[in-house]
Design a protein around this nucleic acid. Structure first.
Lengths: 356, 356
DNA sequence: ACTGGCACTCACCGTAATGGAGTGCCAGGT
DNA sequence: ACCTGGCACTCCATTACGGTGAGTGCCAGT
């Protein structure tokens, strides 16, 4: 069935009101607030249709309506225009990001900024190693049988690993090795290095063969295969805002009534999920292009996050994408504002990175 | 007034029971569980005295007793023996920490381990730069007017900063500079470098003067003065455990009755405090010696954390202390077990660090 | 100095009554 | 064909109320 324009208007109005008040919205209040030019009874009929189609639901008979995940989805896809940021917000973003001194610093500031602006949980993935290029590889002697390998990527990320050597090595040899690996690996995408590392290893002459084996192992094992990703998080306190998530916590007596479909999430599993880097990476680290993606409620693959929505986008210098960032909040979030903010922050961060 | 032995026994019993059940404990239940060889009435008299002295309080008339912060303090100082860890726990610690590949890795594993073992919020300070020695300084050319300065400390921590040069510099000069700063700064404690950096700067000959100025500025400004500290956090989900903290969240209607002294904390301000690195550093970064320190309730300098207790200790390779770690939880935590775990983890981490 | 006994207090729990917001549906109007 | 006003109905939320029981404080007795 096709929904006519007024029904869509009603849906939009309900979403907006519900997001603002976080209380089920009834027909009467609706016509008052939004100047729909029809009577409550008419709206009720529309509501009934919208409910039948799965865009709305009633917490219980004789309560107002609440959007379903499907309702939010329609709202996001077709009913909302992305709110432009206020000048104050733009200024806040700029002020926050200039003066960053460090990649760490950039990421930290970004994630806090995002949490503050959206008043939600913010997540920023560090520039992904997989998508970065090798800028420089440094070898530092720790002892005669130990080297510290330091890799610097073009996004400014630094990664270090200890290399245990099978036999002692002297200074000139270290320099030779360093020279070699930089010549052969410098400028490559990290994913491209695998083949090169193996090539170097096979070609190498006798004396450096031993050290190179150790080095190659470390390089392959950790920097390529198990591409270590990192994540920064902020604003978890915002999970306690606005009572949508009721905090059943770990209390005792509670009417353990059968809430089958209830969206009554606890804060608990969410906090747990947020500490699982694997989960965060799946959510925020998959931004292949710089498209903004919105996952609403149970569109989410993770059980524990089915009461939340996730807004993500990719970021990076210029048009490239080196990582993802975004926010996580209750399904009843202000999507237009959130999407706008996430995008704006991503763009600014991209600019900052481009300047390095 | 002096408390006789039995009164202390009663206090201990109450603390133990309350920690276990998290419900006010009454006289009858007490004598049953612990085989005190006196009657409930006697215990009641003791309780009355303990309450008068401020070690106990009653949530309301005709409820059982609950320890006050002062009561916990006495318990921790005089009544508890630190529980030895179970073999299983020891094994868990070892298994968790071997295989760490990285300083980042060590810290991450440690903080998760600590959260898991204590079932509380765990905090680990990265090895403090202020207390570390310079192992190596690396200069990497990014462009002719930009250098990346990478500092590696003896605790394995790596810090990088971008240096903007006033004029182009060539390869040999970079090598010379690198040589110079390593010769002069290598092995020094970071706090000792200030003077050296300035000395180098003043002595340097004409050609490298310009670059050295820029380099010195960066070194002084960020690595010495604003000694950047970092913090890792885990187990925030544990804040929702055991209903001691009732989650009033941000709800509307609530009996805004005068709970004056009530320990009824919200989870909210705690989460906020945990995101303030300044606060965490004050709490966990002040372990001057490897002494274990326990801050109970309002002994805590931070308003928002007055419903929590903090157990901290220093850690580092050998006898030195390079950072702090510990846990934060409700005042009604199992102090003996927590203290034991925190200490044990700190010791193991020290050993791991010593092996680098 | 300890104990048993006893009256008293108060949170907790289940039930009942009341109020009100909101719905669904129908009959009448445009 | 669509919209509207009216009306009966449903069900949550809030308040009120009495019973129950754990726990206390105190006192008199050992």
């Amino acid at each position: 069935m096709e929904l006519d324009d007024r029904k869509l208007d009603v849906l939009r109005a309900i979403v907006e009101d519900y997001v603002a008040t976080q209380e089920p919205v009834g027909s009467k209040a609706l016509v008052e607030r939004h100047h729909l030019r029809v009577s409550p009874a008419t709206v009720r009929n529309d509501m009934a249709v919208l409910e039948e189609e799965g865009y709305l639901r009633q917490p219980h008979t004789s309560a107002g309506r609440v959007p379903t995940d499907k309702g939010y989805r329609l709202f996001v896809d077709r009913l909302s225009r992305i709110k432009p940021l206020s000048p104050a917000e733009r200024r806040a973003i700029e002020r926050f990001l200039i003066g960053a001194v460090n990649l760490d610093d950039v990421v930290h500031r970004t994630v806090r900024l995002l949490a503050q602006l959206t008043r939600q949980v913010a997540v920023v993935q560090y520039p992904s190693l997989a998508r970065s290029r090798v800028r420089h590889l440094e070898l530092v002697s720790i002892s005669t049988t130990r080297l510290m390998l330091v890799m610097i990527t073009d996004a400014g990320r630094v990664e270090q690993r200890l290399v245990e050597l099978p036999a002692p090595i002297d200074g000139p040899e270290v320099i030779e090795l360093r020279q070699l690996i930089n010549d052969r690996l410098g400028g490559l995408l990290l994913v491209e290095t695998t083949a090169q590392v193996q090539a170097i290893h096979e070609q190498i002459r006798g004396e450096l063969r031993g050290p190179m084996t150790a080095l190659a192992t470390v390089l392959l094992e950790t920097l390529v295969e198990r591409t270590e990703e990192r994540i920064a998080l902020a604003g978890t306190a915002n999970l306690t805002r606005g009572g949508l998530l009721d905090f059943a916590g770990g209390e005792r007596g509670h009417h353990a009534g059968g809430d089958q479909r209830g969206v009554s999430g606890t804060i608990r599993p969410i906090l747990e999920a947020l500490e699982e880097e694997v989960i965060l990476l799946k959510l925020f680290g998959q931004a292949e292009q710089s498209l903004t993606r919105v996952r609403i409620g149970d569109e989410n693959e993770f059980e524990d996050l089915r009461a939340t929505s996730v807004v993500t986008t990719g970021y990076g210098p210029g048009k490239t994408v080196v990582g993802g960032l975004g926010v996580l909040g209750p399904t009843r979030m202000d999507y237009p504002a959130t999407i706008a903010t996430v995008r704006a922050v991503a763009r600014y961060v991209g600019e900052v990175l481009a300047q390095n």
